[in-house]
Simulated assay, not measured.
Amino acid sequence: MSYFLDDTLCSEAKKELFTVVDWLRWCTSRLDESEVYFGHGTDNPWDEAVALVLQSLRLPFDCPDSLYHARLTTREKELILERMKLRINQRTPLAYLTHEAYFCGLPFYVDDRVLVPRSPIAELIEQHFEAWVQEPSTILDLCTGSGCIAVACAHYFPNVFVTATDLSEDALDVATINVQHHQVDDRVCLLQSDGFSQIPQQTFDLIVSNPPYVDAEDMSDLPDEFLKEPELGLASGKDGLDLTHRIIQEASQYLSEQGVLIVEVGNSWPALADNYPQLAFEWIQFERGGDGVFALTRQQLVDAGF
Score class of each variant (00 low, 15 high):
residue 129 F to C: 06
residue 34 S to P: 04
residue 76 E to D: 08
residue 10 C to Y: 00
residue 14 K to T: 15
residue 198 Q to V: 10
residue 82 E to M: 12
residue 126 E to N: 04
residue 157 F to T: 06
residue 36 V to G: 02
residue 189 C to Q: 15
residue 296 L to V: 09
residue 175 A to C: 07
residue 195 G to D: 01
residue 57 L to M: 10
residue 57 L to T: 07
residue 141 D to K: 10
residue 22 D to W: 06
residue 180 Q to W: 03
residue 253 Q to M: 07
residue 141 D to C: 09
residue 16 E to Q: 15
residue 168 S to N: 06
residue 265 V to A: 04
residue 18 F to T: 12
residue 285 Q to T: 15
residue 228 K to N: 06
residue 128 H to K: 12
residue 237 G to Y: 00
residue 109 Y to Q: 08
residue 100 E to A: 11
residue 270 P to W: 04
residue 73 T to C: 07
residue 282 E to P: 04
residue 45 P to Q: 09
residue 114 V to L: 12
residue 299 Q to Y: 01
residue 140 L to W: 01
residue 18 F to M: 12
residue 268 S to A: 13
residue 8 T to S: 11
residue 6 D to Q: 05
residue 65 D to C: 10
residue 138 T to V: 07
residue 266 G to T: 08
residue 138 T to F: 14
residue 37 Y to F: 10
residue 163 T to C: 05
residue 294 F to Y: 09
residue 199 I to V: 14
residue 98 T to V: 10
residue 300 Q to E: 13
residue 241 L to S: 05
residue 90 Q to L: 08
residue 145 G to S: 06
residue 276 Y to K: 03
residue 184 V to L: 03
residue 230 P to N: 03
residue 262 I to Y: 03
residue 190 L to Y: 03
residue 250 E to F: 13
residue 280 A to C: 08
residue 253 Q to S: 11
residue 158 P to W: 00
residue 227 L to F: 12
residue 119 S to L: 06
residue 65 D to L: 14
residue 287 E to Q: 12
residue 300 Q to Y: 09
residue 95 A to F: 00
residue 238 K to I: 11
residue 36 V to T: 04
residue 167 L to W: 00
residue 35 E to F: 02
residue 121 I to N: 03
residue 9 L to N: 05
